[in-house]
Amino acid sequence: MVQENIVSMRNVTFTYREASKPAVDNLNLDIPKGSWVSIIGHNGSGKSTITRLIDGLIASDNLEKSKIFIDGVELTPETVWDLRKQIGIVFQNPDNQFVGATVADDVAFGLENRGIARPEMVKRVAQALKDVGMDDYAKTEPSNLSGGQKQRVAIAGILAVHPQIIILDEATSMLDPEGRDEILHIVREMQKRDHLTVISITHDINAVNNSDLVAVVDDGKLLAYDQPDKIFSHTKLLREIGLDVPFFYQVRDSLEAAGVSVPSSISSEEELVNYLCQLNSKM
């Protein structure tokens, strides 16, 4: 085996009750350990359903045909409780994820649930808050925090239980640009330090561009799965299913349409900037 997969999905199909067609349709997806994988697709394409399947919150239609492996172990009604400890999810709305009266209580919640001994718990809470830069706020009431701070606390709650996989489900879409960059920076640092795998559902095209791999999902099917630059070279396909491409591709296409030709070999913003500057200085 060349590469170890932390998540493997085989022929996974899931249909919501009373729905006329599956939300996830015969999906096969491998997520390499330690990678940052973005899942993109329009609303209702099945992105969140995939992560709920991975977390065992819902089970596939046919457990005989569909298989999901987390870190090599098959997800079954028996293994789901243990496997779920490996996975933490940060959701879109920070206000929906608070249970504790203080920031520290909130971070401790997941540890209490897992019956971690108190001395260890205190140590882990302190470390997790430090990791996300919220150690000064341990005694603060969560409602007094900004959106970005709340999301950092949510991440601390996940780091404290030492998972292998962090799922970001639109976790930055309510934040201002600075808050968003902070969260992505923190998660990336932790990913490197603790060799975490990050699965990110997002419409933020810059975050997608910084991933190792991008999965494009449409109608519950995996349409494409590749490195960002390869994915984004299919601008037409992405536009057809209602998704954005990074800005420099939009500039390139827009210039083409306006009669300024740009070589198709250009595949980064820097290259486009340099090309336009050279073109200008030659004139």
Binding site: H42, G242, D244
Partner: peptide, 9 residues
């Protein structure tokens, strides 16, 4: 429009 996909937005 937060959380809507690019076309929806």
């Amino acid at each position: 429009a937060a959380g809507l996909d690019p076309r929806g937005r």
